[in-house]
Design a protein around this nucleic acid. Structure first.
Lengths: 142, 142
DNA sequence: ATCCCTGCAAAGCCTTTGCAATGCA
DNA sequence: TGCATTGCAAAGGCTTTGCAGGGAT
């Protein structure tokens, strides 16, 4: 069975996009990071093996994957965007102390708006973000 | 009865902060904007009357008001922060086409996490953001 | 062989910072 | 008067862009 990395690479080609070593490395890096890496984290990680990797390529590839709908872009209000393969129904939990991000199961389907409040919008997505302090930071607070 | 602007100005002084014409103008500007202005919008608006107003002062004052808990800072993933006086329970609805932001009534109190999923976090806030296309942009899409 | 993709460097956008001058309390 | 606050200008952090050379199909 092909790895998930391979599957996404195939998907790239199937869409008429080119599969370059850089792109494969970025996709691999996304899988190697367990959770919500930022573009910079991917950049730094991939650079260990490909010292010439540029920001442009990282951003290009991430955008492409988002466009292909295999990657999710998260703006958690932390100043930089995070990327997430996990498409399951979940919300995010952010530590206001250290910026840690955790996934939490959350049924978005149940989070809907009565039609009289939608201002006529065609709603396509919903984001739920919980903010608080993780155990480590909570103990430092007091 | 003092206006809400005056009330906030008093609050400033009561906390030992100084009430300057710039600060009053910024607070007034926040009230004059019906909904979710950005720092830049406030800056541009206030500059009409005070051409020397600096970015530093706008940002300083906004931060101060946030610190005083009379203003809410919203990062809606649009690249810039929005500010909101409305403290009522509500969520936000964002148009992916034009960036328009609407308030929608939403009972955040009902949006909670079962304790087994909180990762031990002490949760202090919750943000709900709906994304979609407003009537104008939806019609352009097709 | 084509032309998409890469790397480099610079620019862009929003926000923050340093510092001397100003003006509120 | 003293010190918080201001304005200016520059820097900072993340992301985007332009362009020429290089590599995937």
């Amino acid at each position: 069975m092909p790895s998930s990395v391979d599957r996404i690479c195939e998907q790239l080609k199937a869409q008429g996009r080119r599969l370059t070593p850089q792109r494969r490395a970025i996709i691999q890096a996304l899988f190697d990071h367990d959770s919500h890496p930022t573009a910079e984290q991917i950049f730094t990680y991939v650079r260990q093996d490909m010292p010439d990797m540029s920001h442009a390529t990282v951003y290009n590839t991430l955008h492409e994957l988002v466009e292909m709908d295999v990657l999710r872009e998260l703006d958690l209000g932390l100043g930089e965007r995070h990327y997430d393969f996990n498409a399951d129904n979940h919300a995010h939990l952010i530590c206001l102390g250290c910026g840690r991000v955790e996934d939490v199961p959350y049924n978005k389907e149940a989070t809907t708006l009565p039609s009289k409040h939608t201002h006529g919008f065609h709603i396509v997505d919903c984001n739920v973000i919980f903010r608080g302090y993780c155990p480590d930071c909570a103990s430092k607070e007091d």
